[in-house]
Amino acid sequence: MPDRLITEYGAEPGTDCSDAIAQAIAAGGRVVVPPGEFRTGPIRLRSNVELHVSAGGTLRFHTDATAYPIVRTRWQGIECFSHSPLIYAYGETDVAVTGTGTLDGGASTDNWWSSTRPRTDWERLVQWVEDGVPVEERVFAPGHGFRPSFVQPYECRRVRIEDVRIVDAPMWVVHPVFCTDVLVRGVTVESLGPNNDGCNPDSCEDVLISGCSFTTGDDCVAIKSGRDTDGRRVARPSRNIVIESCRFTAGHGALTIGSEASGGVHGVHAHDLHITGTDHAIRIKTNSARGGVIENLTATDITATGLTTSAVLITTRHAEPDPPGEHPPAVRNITITNLTAHSTPRTIEIIDSPRAPVEGFRMS
């Protein structure tokens, strides 16, 4: 795979290098960001392209929403056309983001974080789903729509995100959607904004998250599979997911499943997790509007300290609508072993209902 140094295509530190990066990607191969700070708009990856950010190199992304074209995406578990993720790939094979440099989303309360959710756009999207509007017609104009994910491969095969440091994302940070064979290894996430989940496999299969570090404003690792009616329409579960040898220093749940898991989550194994200062070590959350089956989670060799709420929370009534919905979820076969929790108000919380009981929970 040939190296394509972005400076060979006209990139200069401190300037807008969007065109130079796009040209290097079009040439194919390994696109290299050298030491220095380079400014850029959204990046669209193609098959057989590796974006490599060298040690001492930084890609700092624009924060003007109108700089981001409208693309097919999934936002909070619902498909639509909205602002492009900062790094995006659609329908590609063998894409990678690597290197020990920094990806800086530049998000703050002065830009992306100033409005955590545009209510009118969100209400419009929910209504479109209930009215059966096709995804191709759920299109937001530039400047409307939603805060984008940072890194989102969509319908891709063989995805690798390795070693990079990612800071200050507009929304979810690493967010593969409908992908297979995903490796997220050695990544450092430092992003404390609203909804800044660290890594969200969303209706993905065969995922390994290994040796990563998470300091986040929301859940650290959160496994998803679509929301409510739209998630059931797509009906693609997340399955065969391994989380190993990771560190978690801020966030709601270190390892979370849900709440957008209407397509189901099957087969998650976690081991060797080191947690300090999150709300929960393990959190599974869903409700009767979501539906779906969450099953076969095993977690072992977990050390947690300074948890603010409980070591383990499993609820089938998270944000339960009133009256309850017509799609009670199933949560079953959860096994947790060798969990050491220091200084936590509660060890286990299970909040369920006769319509959606938690079944087959084992802890030893």
Rank of each mutant, 00 (worst) to 15 (best):
I166Y: 05
G277T: 11
S288W: 08
H52F: 06
I43W: 07
G106K: 11
S115H: 06
G292Q: 14
D230R: 05
V173D: 01
F38H: 12
T276H: 10
G106E: 12
G306S: 12
H266I: 14
I243P: 01
G143H: 12
D16C: 10
T180G: 11
F38A: 13
T40D: 15
R232Y: 09
G360Y: 00
T98M: 02
W122H: 07
G143C: 12
T286F: 12
R233P: 09
Y90F: 15
E162P: 00
E79C: 09
D272A: 10
M171P: 00
T116R: 08
R317P: 05
I161S: 03
S149H: 10
S262N: 07
V139H: 05
P329E: 08
T347C: 00
F61E: 06
H318K: 06
Q152R: 12
T337K: 00
D131T: 12
S238A: 13
V173N: 02
I241R: 02
T276K: 10
E205Y: 05
S203Q: 08
G186M: 10
P354D: 12
D110F: 07
E8Y: 11
H274M: 04
I294H: 06
S259N: 11
R332L: 08
I223L: 12
H327Q: 09
V173E: 02
P2K: 14
G56F: 02
L255Y: 05
P324H: 14
V177T: 14
G132Y: 14
D219T: 06
S225Q: 10
G291F: 08
G251V: 03
T66W: 10
V293R: 14
R117M: 14
E50Y: 00
V53M: 07
V31T: 14
V221I: 13
T278Q: 11
H266L: 12
E12A: 15
F81R: 14
A96M: 02
M363K: 00
E326K: 10
G29W: 09
G325Y: 04
R233I: 15
T66C: 07
T180K: 11
G10R: 13
L5D: 14
L208C: 05
A24S: 06
L51N: 05
T340Q: 00
F361Y: 11
V164K: 03
C156D: 06
I241M: 06
N296K: 07
H62S: 15
T116Y: 08
R185V: 06
P170A: 13
T303N: 01
A222G: 09
R138C: 09
I78A: 10
